[in-house]
Design a protein around this nucleic acid. Structure first.
Lengths: 224, 224
DNA sequence: AAATATTTGTCCGTATGTATC
DNA sequence: TGATACATACGGACAAATATT
């Protein structure tokens, strides 16, 4: 039955499951067949099937519950982070600079949209994060506030792909940057400028603050 | 032993494996312990362990060979495509526009770097793809050429994260766009402009061509 | 409410194929 | 040519969670 030794079974099954989902144009909430049905129709053991299907679950494509079954999830921007994150690990610190470059391109590219869509609610959150940053001493928590600040900026831009990408770039950066010493006052100041320009609805000042933010972020690792 | 029923075992194991890799700062080529060792030290069955570890393999983090074991892979920008791709499916066509917006931000953000780093070899490849586009009738293959064209532009930019992101955005777009009818002559023309500006080393013309490319890409679905 | 069926979660044992020495 | 180490794949069994009647 298995003349094609080319690929491992669980890889083939994974591909088959992808095909199953795409060819039927399944939508979020749709139910998948049971493990028994799938393993039978694919002609593999339940074990092999699970290795493929648990990949779909762990990467956030489907959810499973005992007694219920498996349903297709809707888009989830968090799974990407852990996925990309692990693939970036170990390839050297220059990846931090790379992902910072990417973030710069994305954030400046979406600056107009951020400026146009941000609401009072988001501005209040930015203010909150800013105040927390001033108080925060722990490095990890500090970068967490940093990432949440940026996340909030583009929250209302209505682009899930953007959110996912920014999150991914951040999760990579955070991993490495916690090992560096960075200038907290300067970081705070950069974000304060962004916040105040947004609050004042001054687009030119906002762009300037954003440029300034990324302009000097590449150097913080060498000096301070 | 399992008082914490909060999470399913394979999810916990997956997290543990991530921690294992990151906390030891493992580098590509490093070997992981065997399945037996891992399942014992984590106190789970080999089955559960495999469900977690096969996720790492399918998403491209590690490779496994019988008789050898598992080794950490180096960064692979392809895995993301399939990963992100499936998560985008079914959430509506507006995701195409979202990923196009993201591509626009990325490509324009990296335009300078593209312009500065592109070599004669890349230019020849661009020319080749262009000629193929003119001949190609099949929709899927046409979009494949399109994506390869853009991939080649940023090949020498030296940013793996960028490449991964652009690929991901493309894999999403391609899926949906094959279902639309798009204006092939116009698409060809847009890429010809980009190519000729690059070949002529005219930065202003290049930026103009790039803007033009994305400016009208959002409308191709409605008119033609 | 309670019993039963369904479906996933978890574990074990065993046989096979493949690379290394 | 073994002998060993390791991943691959299968099948069965029972527990736990949920749905159904």
């Amino acid at each position: 039955m298995k003349n094609l030794k080319a690929k491992k079974l669980y890889l083939q099954v994974y591909d088959e499951l992808k095909k199953y989902i795409t060819l039927r144009s399944m939508r979020p909430g749709d139910k998948l067949p049971t493990e028994m049905e799938l393993s039978e129709s694919l002609g593999v053991s339940r074990n092999v099937l699970r290795e493929a299907i648990k990949t779909l679950e762990i990467t956030g494509v489907v959810s499973s519950k005992p007694g219920v079954g498996m349903v297709l999830n809707s888009f989830n921007s968090n799974f990407l982070s852990s996925c990309l994150f692990l693939n970036l690990i170990g390839d050297g610190v220059n990846l931090v600079e790379q992902s910072q470059e990417v973030r710069k391109a994305l954030e400046i590219g979406f600056a107009r949209k951020c400026f146009d869509t941000i609401t009072a609610e988001q501005l209040d959150k930015l203010e909150y994060y800013l105040n927390e940053m001033k108080k925060e001493d722990n490095v990890v928590d500090f970068y967490d506030l940093d990432s949440q600040f940026h996340r909030t900026m583009y929250e209302k831009a209505g682009n899930d792909v953007l959110s996912a990408f920014i999150d991914s770039a951040w999760s990579c950066e955070k991993y490495y940057r916690t090992r560096w010493i960075s200038n907290r006052e300067m970081t705070y100041e950069k974000h304060r400028r962004i916040y105040e320009a947004l609050r004042a609805k001054n687009y030119d000042a906002f762009m300037e603050a954003l440029q300034y933010h990324f302009e000097y972020s590449f150097k913080t690792k060498s000096n301070d």
